[in-house]
Design a protein around this nucleic acid. Structure first.
Lengths: 205, 205
DNA sequence: ATTAGATTGGACCGTTCAGTCCAGTTCTTG
DNA sequence: CAAGAACTGGACTGAACGGTCCAATCTAAT
Protein backbone atom coordinates (compact mmCIF):
# COMPACT_ATOMS: atom_id res chain seq x y z
CA UNK A 1 0.00 0.00 0.00
CA UNK A 2 2.51 2.68 0.94
CA UNK A 3 4.64 3.66 -2.00
CA UNK A 4 7.33 5.98 -3.12
CA UNK A 5 6.00 9.35 -4.24
CA UNK A 6 5.48 9.53 -7.99
CA UNK A 7 5.31 13.28 -8.40
CA UNK A 8 7.47 16.18 -7.32
CA UNK A 9 4.75 17.37 -4.98
CA UNK A 10 4.53 13.98 -3.36
CA UNK A 11 8.29 13.85 -2.91
CA UNK A 12 8.27 17.21 -1.18
CA UNK A 13 5.51 16.07 1.15
CA UNK A 14 7.30 12.89 2.06
CA UNK A 15 10.53 14.77 2.63
CA UNK A 16 8.79 17.32 4.85
CA UNK A 17 7.32 14.55 6.97
CA UNK A 18 10.60 12.68 7.38
CA UNK A 19 12.55 15.85 8.15
CA UNK A 20 10.06 16.96 10.79
CA UNK A 21 9.98 13.50 12.32
CA UNK A 22 13.77 13.38 12.39
CA UNK A 23 13.98 16.71 14.17
CA UNK A 24 11.35 15.90 16.75
CA UNK A 25 12.69 12.42 17.39
CA UNK A 26 16.18 13.78 17.77
CA UNK A 27 14.99 16.12 20.49
CA UNK A 28 12.40 13.93 22.23
CA UNK A 29 12.95 10.33 21.29
CA UNK A 30 10.70 8.05 19.31
CA UNK A 31 8.07 7.16 21.89
CA UNK A 32 7.69 10.73 23.05
CA UNK A 33 7.03 11.94 19.52
CA UNK A 34 3.45 11.54 18.31
CA UNK A 35 2.43 11.39 14.68
CA UNK A 36 0.09 14.33 15.16
CA UNK A 37 3.03 16.37 16.38
CA UNK A 38 5.03 15.40 13.31
CA UNK A 39 2.14 16.25 11.01
CA UNK A 40 1.52 19.62 12.61
CA UNK A 41 5.16 20.57 12.18
CA UNK A 42 5.32 19.20 8.65
CA UNK A 43 2.01 20.87 7.78
CA UNK A 44 0.67 17.59 6.47
CA UNK A 45 -2.30 15.38 7.25
CA UNK A 46 -2.77 11.83 8.45
CA UNK A 47 -3.65 10.55 5.03
CA UNK A 48 -0.47 12.01 3.61
CA UNK A 49 1.61 10.20 6.18
CA UNK A 50 -0.16 6.90 5.66
CA UNK A 51 0.06 7.37 1.94
CA UNK A 52 3.83 7.00 2.13
CA UNK A 53 4.40 4.94 5.27
CA UNK A 54 2.78 1.71 6.38
CA UNK A 55 2.92 2.66 10.04
CA UNK A 56 4.94 4.54 12.61
CA UNK A 57 7.71 1.98 12.51
CA UNK A 58 8.17 2.54 8.79
CA UNK A 59 8.44 6.26 9.43
CA UNK A 60 11.02 5.63 12.12
CA UNK A 61 13.06 3.50 9.78
CA UNK A 62 12.91 6.28 7.20
CA UNK A 63 14.18 8.65 9.87
CA UNK A 64 17.05 6.28 10.59
CA UNK A 65 17.96 6.24 6.92
CA UNK A 66 17.67 10.03 6.77
CA UNK A 67 19.89 10.55 9.81
CA UNK A 68 22.39 8.00 8.58
CA UNK A 69 22.65 9.72 5.23
CA UNK A 70 22.94 13.21 6.67
CA UNK A 71 25.30 12.28 9.48
CA UNK A 72 27.56 9.66 7.98
CA UNK A 73 27.41 11.46 4.65
CA UNK A 74 28.32 14.82 6.15
CA UNK A 75 31.15 13.23 8.04
CA UNK A 76 32.74 11.70 4.97
CA UNK A 77 34.25 14.87 3.60
CA UNK A 78 35.43 15.97 6.98
CA UNK A 79 37.13 12.66 7.75
CA UNK A 80 38.65 12.49 4.28
CA UNK A 81 40.74 15.53 5.13
CA UNK A 82 42.27 14.18 8.29
CA UNK A 83 45.89 13.30 7.73
CA UNK A 84 47.66 14.44 10.86
CA UNK A 85 47.25 14.39 14.62
CA UNK A 86 46.43 18.07 14.55
CA UNK A 87 43.67 17.55 12.01
CA UNK A 88 42.27 14.66 14.03
CA UNK A 89 42.21 16.70 17.19
CA UNK A 90 40.67 19.64 15.36
CA UNK A 91 37.85 17.33 14.32
CA UNK A 92 37.43 16.18 17.90
CA UNK A 93 37.31 19.76 19.04
CA UNK A 94 34.70 20.52 16.40
CA UNK A 95 32.53 17.73 17.79
CA UNK A 96 32.83 19.24 21.25
CA UNK A 97 32.06 22.71 19.94
CA UNK A 98 28.99 21.35 18.19
CA UNK A 99 27.70 19.85 21.42
CA UNK A 100 28.51 23.02 23.28
CA UNK A 101 26.50 25.03 20.77
CA UNK A 102 23.56 22.69 21.26
CA UNK A 103 23.86 22.76 25.05
CA UNK A 104 24.55 19.01 24.96
CA UNK A 105 20.92 18.50 24.24
CA UNK A 106 20.92 15.95 21.44
CA UNK A 107 24.06 13.83 21.49
CA UNK A 108 24.29 11.56 18.47
CA UNK A 109 20.98 10.95 16.68
CA UNK A 110 22.03 7.43 15.71
CA UNK A 111 23.26 6.65 19.20
CA UNK A 112 20.06 7.88 20.82
CA UNK A 113 17.93 5.90 18.41
CA UNK A 114 20.05 2.83 19.02
CA UNK A 115 19.66 3.08 22.77
CA UNK A 116 15.91 3.47 22.50
CA UNK A 117 15.12 0.98 19.75
CA UNK A 118 17.64 -1.84 20.07
CA UNK A 119 15.44 -3.67 22.56
CA UNK A 120 12.07 -3.18 20.96
CA UNK A 121 12.41 -3.01 17.19
CA UNK A 122 14.54 -5.67 15.58
CA UNK A 123 14.46 -4.18 12.08
CA UNK A 124 15.46 -0.78 13.37
CA UNK A 125 18.22 -2.36 15.42
CA UNK A 126 19.69 -3.90 12.29
CA UNK A 127 19.45 -0.61 10.41
CA UNK A 128 21.26 1.12 13.24
CA UNK A 129 23.90 -1.58 13.46
CA UNK A 130 24.61 -1.04 9.76
CA UNK A 131 24.68 2.68 10.35
CA UNK A 132 27.30 2.28 13.06
CA UNK A 133 29.30 -0.04 10.83
CA UNK A 134 29.24 2.50 8.04
CA UNK A 135 30.56 5.11 10.41
CA UNK A 136 33.21 2.75 11.72
CA UNK A 137 34.26 1.96 8.16
CA UNK A 138 34.87 5.64 7.52
CA UNK A 139 36.96 5.91 10.66
CA UNK A 140 38.80 2.80 9.53
CA UNK A 141 39.66 4.43 6.22
CA UNK A 142 40.86 7.51 8.02
CA UNK A 143 43.06 5.50 10.36
CA UNK A 144 44.49 3.56 7.44
CA UNK A 145 45.51 6.87 5.94
CA UNK A 146 47.21 7.89 9.16
CA UNK A 147 49.02 4.57 9.19
CA UNK A 148 50.14 4.99 5.60
CA UNK A 149 51.57 8.35 6.53
CA UNK A 150 53.60 6.67 9.22
CA UNK A 151 51.65 8.08 12.14
CA UNK A 152 50.58 4.63 13.29
CA UNK A 153 52.64 1.49 13.58
CA UNK A 154 52.36 -0.73 10.50
CA UNK A 155 50.88 -3.50 12.64
CA UNK A 156 48.27 -1.28 14.31
CA UNK A 157 44.82 -2.85 14.02
CA UNK A 158 43.01 0.05 12.42
CA UNK A 159 39.71 -1.81 12.14
CA UNK A 160 39.56 -2.43 15.85
CA UNK A 161 40.78 1.05 16.64
CA UNK A 162 37.95 2.44 14.53
CA UNK A 163 35.39 0.63 16.68
CA UNK A 164 37.15 1.79 19.81
CA UNK A 165 37.10 5.42 18.71
CA UNK A 166 33.45 5.15 17.76
CA UNK A 167 32.61 3.66 21.16
CA UNK A 168 34.44 6.44 22.94
CA UNK A 169 32.64 9.08 20.90
CA UNK A 170 29.27 7.53 21.67
CA UNK A 171 30.03 7.14 25.35
CA UNK A 172 31.37 10.66 25.58
CA UNK A 173 28.25 12.01 23.93
CA UNK A 174 26.05 10.08 26.33
CA UNK A 175 27.91 11.37 29.36
CA UNK A 176 27.88 14.91 28.02
CA UNK A 177 24.16 14.74 27.30
CA UNK A 178 23.38 13.33 30.71
CA UNK A 179 25.47 15.76 32.70
CA UNK A 180 24.93 18.63 30.25
CA UNK A 181 28.70 19.13 30.41
CA UNK A 182 30.57 19.14 27.09
CA UNK A 183 33.76 18.71 29.05
CA UNK A 184 32.95 15.00 29.46
CA UNK A 185 33.01 14.58 25.72
CA UNK A 186 36.26 16.50 25.45
CA UNK A 187 37.90 14.26 28.05
CA UNK A 188 36.67 11.12 26.31
CA UNK A 189 37.94 12.30 22.94
CA UNK A 190 41.28 13.31 24.40
CA UNK A 191 41.65 9.77 25.69
CA UNK A 192 40.74 8.37 22.28
CA UNK A 193 43.40 10.60 20.78
CA UNK A 194 45.87 9.51 23.43
CA UNK A 195 45.13 5.89 22.69
CA UNK A 196 45.74 6.36 18.98
CA UNK A 197 48.97 8.22 19.65
CA UNK A 198 50.07 5.29 21.78
CA UNK A 199 49.90 3.28 18.56
CA UNK A 200 52.45 5.58 16.94
CA UNK A 201 55.73 4.00 15.88
CA UNK A 202 58.26 3.88 18.70
CA UNK A 203 60.62 6.84 18.35
CA UNK A 204 64.08 5.72 17.26
CA UNK A 205 66.37 5.59 20.27
CA UNK B 1 0.25 11.85 49.53
CA UNK B 2 2.63 9.03 48.57
CA UNK B 3 4.66 7.94 51.57
CA UNK B 4 7.22 5.46 52.69
CA UNK B 5 5.73 2.16 53.76
CA UNK B 6 5.11 2.00 57.51
CA UNK B 7 4.82 -1.74 57.92
CA UNK B 8 6.85 -4.74 56.85
CA UNK B 9 4.11 -5.78 54.46
CA UNK B 10 4.10 -2.37 52.86
CA UNK B 11 7.84 -2.44 52.46
CA UNK B 12 7.67 -5.79 50.72
CA UNK B 13 4.99 -4.52 48.36
CA UNK B 14 6.93 -1.42 47.48
CA UNK B 15 10.06 -3.45 46.92
CA UNK B 16 8.22 -5.90 44.68
CA UNK B 17 6.89 -3.07 42.56
CA UNK B 18 10.26 -1.36 42.17
CA UNK B 19 12.05 -4.61 41.38
CA UNK B 20 9.51 -5.58 38.73
CA UNK B 21 9.61 -2.12 37.22
CA UNK B 22 13.41 -2.18 37.17
CA UNK B 23 13.48 -5.50 35.37
CA UNK B 24 10.89 -4.56 32.78
CA UNK B 25 12.39 -1.15 32.17
CA UNK B 26 15.83 -2.65 31.79
CA UNK B 27 14.53 -4.94 29.06
CA UNK B 28 12.06 -2.63 27.32
CA UNK B 29 12.75 0.94 28.26
CA UNK B 30 10.60 3.33 30.26
CA UNK B 31 8.01 4.31 27.67
CA UNK B 32 7.51 0.77 26.49
CA UNK B 33 6.76 -0.41 30.01
CA UNK B 34 3.21 0.16 31.21
CA UNK B 35 2.16 0.36 34.81
CA UNK B 36 -0.31 -2.46 34.31
CA UNK B 37 2.54 -4.64 33.13
CA UNK B 38 4.57 -3.77 36.21
CA UNK B 39 1.61 -4.50 38.47
CA UNK B 40 0.85 -7.82 36.88
CA UNK B 41 4.44 -8.95 37.31
CA UNK B 42 4.64 -7.60 40.85
CA UNK B 43 1.25 -9.10 41.68
CA UNK B 44 0.06 -5.78 43.00
CA UNK B 45 -2.79 -3.41 42.25
CA UNK B 46 -3.09 0.14 41.06
CA UNK B 47 -3.90 1.47 44.49
CA UNK B 48 -0.81 -0.16 45.90
CA UNK B 49 1.35 1.55 43.34
CA UNK B 50 -0.23 4.93 43.85
CA UNK B 51 -0.06 4.46 47.59
CA UNK B 52 3.73 4.63 47.41
CA UNK B 53 4.41 6.67 44.27
CA UNK B 54 2.95 9.97 43.19
CA UNK B 55 3.04 9.03 39.50
CA UNK B 56 4.99 7.06 36.94
CA UNK B 57 7.87 9.51 37.06
CA UNK B 58 8.28 8.89 40.78
CA UNK B 59 8.40 5.17 40.14
CA UNK B 60 11.02 5.68 37.45
CA UNK B 61 13.13 7.71 39.83
CA UNK B 62 12.85 4.93 42.38
CA UNK B 63 14.03 2.52 39.72
CA UNK B 64 17.00 4.77 39.00
CA UNK B 65 17.91 4.76 42.68
CA UNK B 66 17.47 0.99 42.81
CA UNK B 67 19.66 0.38 39.78
CA UNK B 68 22.27 2.82 41.02
CA UNK B 69 22.45 1.08 44.37
CA UNK B 70 22.61 -2.41 42.93
CA UNK B 71 25.01 -1.58 40.12
CA UNK B 72 27.39 0.94 41.61
CA UNK B 73 27.17 -0.84 44.95
CA UNK B 74 27.93 -4.23 43.46
CA UNK B 75 30.85 -2.76 41.56
CA UNK B 76 32.51 -1.30 44.63
CA UNK B 77 33.91 -4.53 46.00
CA UNK B 78 35.05 -5.68 42.61
CA UNK B 79 36.86 -2.41 41.85
CA UNK B 80 38.40 -2.32 45.30
CA UNK B 81 40.36 -5.45 44.46
CA UNK B 82 41.94 -4.14 41.28
CA UNK B 83 45.60 -3.41 41.86
CA UNK B 84 47.32 -4.62 38.70
CA UNK B 85 46.90 -4.53 34.94
CA UNK B 86 45.94 -8.18 35.01
CA UNK B 87 43.19 -7.55 37.55
CA UNK B 88 41.90 -4.60 35.53
CA UNK B 89 41.78 -6.65 32.38
CA UNK B 90 40.11 -9.52 34.22
CA UNK B 91 37.39 -7.09 35.26
CA UNK B 92 37.00 -5.92 31.67
CA UNK B 93 36.73 -9.51 30.55
CA UNK B 94 34.10 -10.16 33.20
CA UNK B 95 32.05 -7.28 31.79
CA UNK B 96 32.27 -8.80 28.34
CA UNK B 97 31.37 -12.23 29.65
CA UNK B 98 28.36 -10.75 31.40
CA UNK B 99 27.12 -9.21 28.16
CA UNK B 100 27.81 -12.41 26.32
CA UNK B 101 25.72 -14.34 28.82
CA UNK B 102 22.88 -11.88 28.34
CA UNK B 103 23.18 -11.97 24.55
CA UNK B 104 24.00 -8.26 24.64
CA UNK B 105 20.40 -7.58 25.36
CA UNK B 106 20.50 -5.03 28.14
CA UNK B 107 23.71 -3.03 28.09
CA UNK B 108 24.04 -0.79 31.12
CA UNK B 109 20.74 -0.03 32.90
CA UNK B 110 21.95 3.41 33.88
CA UNK B 111 23.21 4.17 30.41
CA UNK B 112 19.97 3.08 28.78
CA UNK B 113 17.90 5.14 31.18
CA UNK B 114 20.16 8.12 30.57
CA UNK B 115 19.78 7.89 26.82
CA UNK B 116 16.01 7.67 27.09
CA UNK B 117 15.32 10.18 29.84
CA UNK B 118 17.96 12.88 29.54
CA UNK B 119 15.83 14.80 27.06
CA UNK B 120 12.44 14.47 28.64
CA UNK B 121 12.78 14.27 32.42
CA UNK B 122 15.01 16.83 34.04
CA UNK B 123 14.85 15.33 37.54
CA UNK B 124 15.71 11.88 36.24
CA UNK B 125 18.54 13.37 34.19
CA UNK B 126 20.06 14.84 37.33
CA UNK B 127 19.70 11.56 39.20
CA UNK B 128 21.43 9.75 36.37
CA UNK B 129 24.19 12.34 36.15
CA UNK B 130 24.86 11.77 39.84
CA UNK B 131 24.79 8.05 39.26
CA UNK B 132 27.43 8.35 36.55
CA UNK B 133 29.52 10.58 38.77
CA UNK B 134 29.36 8.04 41.57
CA UNK B 135 30.57 5.39 39.19
CA UNK B 136 33.32 7.64 37.88
CA UNK B 137 34.39 8.39 41.44
CA UNK B 138 34.88 4.69 42.07
CA UNK B 139 36.95 4.34 38.94
CA UNK B 140 38.91 7.37 40.05
CA UNK B 141 39.72 5.71 43.37
CA UNK B 142 40.80 2.60 41.56
CA UNK B 143 43.06 4.52 39.21
CA UNK B 144 44.59 6.40 42.13
CA UNK B 145 45.46 3.04 43.62
CA UNK B 146 47.13 1.96 40.40
CA UNK B 147 49.06 5.20 40.36
CA UNK B 148 50.19 4.72 43.95
CA UNK B 149 51.46 1.30 43.00
CA UNK B 150 53.55 2.93 40.31
CA UNK B 151 51.55 1.60 37.39
CA UNK B 152 50.60 5.07 36.26
CA UNK B 153 52.80 8.13 35.96
CA UNK B 154 52.61 10.35 39.04
CA UNK B 155 51.26 13.19 36.94
CA UNK B 156 48.54 11.09 35.26
CA UNK B 157 45.16 12.79 35.57
CA UNK B 158 43.23 9.97 37.17
CA UNK B 159 40.00 11.95 37.45
CA UNK B 160 39.87 12.58 33.72
CA UNK B 161 40.95 9.05 32.94
CA UNK B 162 38.07 7.77 35.06
CA UNK B 163 35.59 9.70 32.91
CA UNK B 164 37.29 8.46 29.77
CA UNK B 165 37.10 4.83 30.88
CA UNK B 166 33.45 5.26 31.83
CA UNK B 167 32.69 6.78 28.44
CA UNK B 168 34.39 3.92 26.65
CA UNK B 169 32.49 1.36 28.69
CA UNK B 170 29.18 3.05 27.93
CA UNK B 171 29.96 3.41 24.25
CA UNK B 172 31.15 -0.17 24.02
CA UNK B 173 27.99 -1.40 25.67
CA UNK B 174 25.85 0.63 23.27
CA UNK B 175 27.66 -0.75 20.23
CA UNK B 176 27.49 -4.29 21.59
CA UNK B 177 23.79 -3.97 22.30
CA UNK B 178 23.06 -2.51 18.89
CA UNK B 179 25.06 -5.03 16.91
CA UNK B 180 24.42 -7.89 19.39
CA UNK B 181 28.13 -8.52 19.20
CA UNK B 182 30.01 -8.61 22.51
CA UNK B 183 33.23 -8.30 20.54
CA UNK B 184 32.56 -4.58 20.13
CA UNK B 185 32.63 -4.15 23.87
CA UNK B 186 35.80 -6.20 24.15
CA UNK B 187 37.51 -4.02 21.54
CA UNK B 188 36.43 -0.84 23.27
CA UNK B 189 37.63 -2.06 26.64
CA UNK B 190 40.94 -3.22 25.16
CA UNK B 191 41.44 0.31 23.88
CA UNK B 192 40.59 1.76 27.29
CA UNK B 193 43.18 -0.58 28.79
CA UNK B 194 45.68 0.40 26.14
CA UNK B 195 45.08 4.05 26.88
CA UNK B 196 45.68 3.55 30.59
CA UNK B 197 48.83 1.56 29.89
CA UNK B 198 50.05 4.44 27.77
CA UNK B 199 49.97 6.46 30.98
CA UNK B 200 52.42 4.08 32.60
CA UNK B 201 55.77 5.52 33.65
CA UNK B 202 58.29 5.59 30.81
CA UNK B 203 60.57 2.60 31.09
CA UNK B 204 64.08 3.62 32.07
CA UNK B 205 66.30 3.70 29.00
C1' DA C 1 -11.03 -6.32 71.86
C1' DT C 2 -11.09 -1.90 69.86
C1' DT C 3 -9.79 1.53 66.87
C1' DA C 4 -7.04 4.48 63.98
C1' DG C 5 -4.20 4.19 60.47
C1' DA C 6 -1.94 1.43 56.86
C1' DT C 7 -2.83 -1.27 53.03
C1' DT C 8 -5.39 -3.44 49.26
C1' DG C 9 -8.70 -4.66 45.09
C1' DG C 10 -10.23 -3.28 41.11
C1' DA C 11 -13.83 -0.71 38.68
C1' DC C 12 -13.83 3.49 36.46
C1' DC C 13 -12.50 7.91 33.93
C1' DG C 14 -10.52 11.07 30.54
C1' DT C 15 -6.96 11.52 27.33
C1' DT C 16 -3.90 10.39 23.92
C1' DC C 17 -2.50 8.00 20.21
C1' DA C 18 -1.85 4.97 16.13
C1' DG C 19 -4.33 3.82 12.54
C1' DT C 20 -8.82 3.86 9.14
C1' DC C 21 -11.80 5.72 5.80
C1' DC C 22 -13.75 8.30 2.25
C1' DA C 23 -14.83 12.22 -0.16
C1' DG C 24 -12.54 15.79 -2.58
C1' DT C 25 -8.65 18.01 -5.19
C1' DT C 26 -4.64 18.18 -8.13
C1' DC C 27 -1.53 16.28 -11.33
C1' DT C 28 -0.15 13.84 -15.57
C1' DT C 29 -0.58 11.85 -19.79
C1' DG C 30 -2.57 10.33 -24.01
C1' DC D 1 -9.44 18.16 -22.58
C1' DA D 2 -10.76 13.89 -20.56
C1' DA D 3 -9.83 10.32 -17.38
C1' DG D 4 -7.35 7.86 -14.42
C1' DA D 5 -3.91 8.06 -11.05
C1' DA D 6 -1.68 10.49 -7.38
C1' DC D 7 -2.40 13.12 -3.63
C1' DT D 8 -4.82 15.54 0.28
C1' DG D 9 -8.04 16.94 4.46
C1' DG D 10 -9.73 15.68 8.42
C1' DA D 11 -13.37 13.31 10.97
C1' DC D 12 -13.63 9.03 13.17
C1' DT D 13 -12.48 4.58 15.80
C1' DG D 14 -10.85 1.45 19.17
C1' DA D 15 -7.51 0.35 22.28
C1' DA D 16 -4.05 1.41 25.66
C1' DC D 17 -2.57 4.04 29.17
C1' DG D 18 -1.89 6.95 33.35
C1' DG D 19 -4.35 8.22 37.00
C1' DT D 20 -8.65 8.46 40.49
C1' DC D 21 -11.71 6.72 43.87
C1' DC D 22 -13.83 4.29 47.51
C1' DA D 23 -15.14 0.50 49.95
C1' DA D 24 -12.99 -3.44 52.08
C1' DT D 25 -9.32 -5.61 54.72
C1' DC D 26 -5.32 -5.93 57.51
C1' DT D 27 -1.99 -4.39 61.27
C1' DA D 28 -0.38 -2.64 65.46
C1' DA D 29 -0.76 -0.46 69.62
C1' DT D 30 -3.58 0.53 73.35
Amino acid sequence: MPEEPKTARGRRTRERIVASAAGLIERQGVEATSLDQVLTEAEASKSQLYHYFADKQALVRAVIAWQTASLVGGMAERLAQIDSWAALEAWFEALVAHQEALNCRVGCPIGSLAAELADTDEAARQDLARSFDGWAAQLHTMLDRLRERGLLRPDADTAQSAYAVLATIQGGLLLAKTTRDPQRLRIALAAAGGYLRSLAPAPRV
